[in-house]
Amino acid sequence: MKPRGQPEDRDRSDRTLVAEIQGRDSDALALLYDRHAPRLLGVADRILGKTGEAEEVVQEVFLYAWRAASSFDPFRGSVLAWLIVATRSRALDRLRARRPATSAQPGGPDALARVAARDDVEAGSASREWEAICRAAIGGLPDDQQRALELAYFDGLTHSEIAERTRAPLGTVKTRIRLGLMKLREHLRPYWGKTNA
């Protein structure tokens, strides 16, 4: 395994595609879409449930990529991470708009439990590698840290909402979030290509 930012597949790397998208190449966008839309839809599904809304979010994200490709900062991580951030923030916006105060708990069973049986979508090798690394990192966290991060990340719960949901003191929740994220960072750091812009 060669971790950091090698060309993502035989043809064109994600970064090359983004550069081509800046040059208004719609084929490059189509390729980027084919490569990552399933992953992004998975994220939107987890946040919004398997709805048409989740699909709309994915569409918005690729329109955003089309029009704002220049906002991609190669020094801040991969193209996929950029797309994921865009997907999550849009999906959470919709989730918040949907629930006035509380209620609605999409997603269902814990994310990790659902990961296992999955193969009908063929991810590129670089994506598979990235997923494996991430899963290992997250799987290595204590359950309570993992749970706190999932509630924040997918359900958009603030730390006080997480405290309420998990019946844990607020300070404990904040500590779990800090420890969890710091550990993930330590684990993933070697794979971030700061030098391969």
């Binding site: 399933p38 991580g77 659902r114 991430c134 997250i138 971030w192």
Partner: peptide, 18 residues
């Protein structure tokens, strides 16, 4: 870096082909 770390959670959900 922590934003990126948080993004790794995305790897734990099953993908779906649109």
């Amino acid at each position: 870096e922590l934003r990126l770390a948080a993004s790794s959670l995305a790897a734990t959900v099953p993908p779906r082909r649109p």
